[in-house]
């Protein structure tokens, strides 16, 4: 695996960040964007199908002249049994090229299905079964995305709110196979891992020991909330202490780590504030410094 470009710490774009993004106080080394929220998809029968407002285009042109941009997709639905949407893939690839993304990422999950030729999108990262058949199914898609993109394509570990019985593999085993045999990479979401630990789904130390950490290019950190007896991945604040502990432990063990991204929903930005956001990134930078490759 070739060394990752070392980007530093980043923020996931939300419109609430516009003021900070254009100011001298911008605290991050790169910006991560969810492209699906920045273009408008008018649907499969529409021409043009993907429309980008002039303001959004100008914003991204300005940002890419100042810092790297990463793309983190939510619409590919790589684990879906339905065919991947070829026009969506074309759009994703074109944007990665336009924005010059060092790498791109998606979720080890599915969010779309169909019924009577009607597409359905549940807006959740529903779990794929952790088994060999999934490796074949998702792996071929990872390989194709990698080929089309001409750059690294990472999969993010998922949250598991309900169980799939009698699975053959653990999630780290499946991710390791997707990396080793299908040329994938890993976006290690430490808050997702923490969610799964808090909900009694897995053990963090076992998970991190099983995962091939040389494949981790990027780490996500975030905060969450309690709901109905579960701890959920709400992106609703600064990371809890347990996530910082995980970050401090795992970052030095990831030799190809290129970036740590803080995910915060725009509706919670006022609660965390500019100062709080900067503090989160400064704290992440400390962990990153321990993990950073030493210049030769």
């Amino acid at each position: 695996m070739s060394p990752a470009p070392f980007l530093g710490v980043g923020l996931l774009y939300q419109p609430a960040l516009d003021g900070l993004l254009s100011s001298d106080a911008w605290p991050a080394d790169y910006l991560e964007v969810i492209p699906d929220t920045l273009w408008h998809d008018a649907g499969r029968s529409a021409t043009p199908r993907f429309v980008v407002d002039d303001g959004t285009r100008r914003l991204l042109e300005d940002v890419r002249s100042r810092m790297p941009i990463l793309m983190h997709g939510i619409g590919l639905s790589i684990g879906s049994a339905d065919e991947l949407d070829p026009e969506y893939v074309d759009q994703f690839v074109a944007w990665a090229e336009w924005l010059g993304c060092p790498w791109t990422s998606e979720h080890l999950a599915y969010c779309t299905s169909s019924e009577d030729d009607t597409g359905i999108n549940v807006g959740l990262t529903l779990p794929v079964a952790l088994e060999r058949a999934t490796e074949e199914h998702v792996g071929a898609r990872v390989q194709e995305m990698r080929r089309r993109l001409g750059r690294r394509f990472l999969l993010e570990n998922n949250v598991y709110y309900f169980e799939t019985t009698q699975e053959e593999l653990s999630e780290p085993e499946l991710l390791n196979r997707l990396c080793a045999d299908w040329d994938g990479g890993v976006l290690l979401d430490l808050h997702n891992l923490h969610v799964n630990v808090r909900n009694g789904v897995m053990d963090a130390a076992t998970y991190l020991d099983e995962l091939d950490l040389t494949r981790v290019r990027e780490i996500h950190i975030a905060g969450g909330a309690e709901l109905d007896g579960f701890y959920v991945d709400a992106h609703s604040g600064a990371p809890p202490q347990e996530v910082w502990d995980l970050l401090d432990e795992v970052a030095p063990r990831c030799p190809n780590l290129g970036g740590i991204t803080f995910e915060l929903l725009g509706s919670w930005f006022d609660l965390v504030g500019e100062t709080g956001t900067t503090e989160v990134l400064d704290r992440a930078r400390q962990s990153m410094a321990v993990a950073a490759p030493v210049p030769s």
Partner: peptide
């Protein structure tokens, strides 16, 4: 078997709530 088991899983009800909230 998996679907029947998931049908009574509290996490599936949570997922429904998250979906509807979204």
């Amino acid at each position: 078997e998996r679907l029947v088991s998931q049908a009574t899983d509290a996490g599936l009800a949570l997922s429904r709530k998250l979906h509807k909230g979204w």
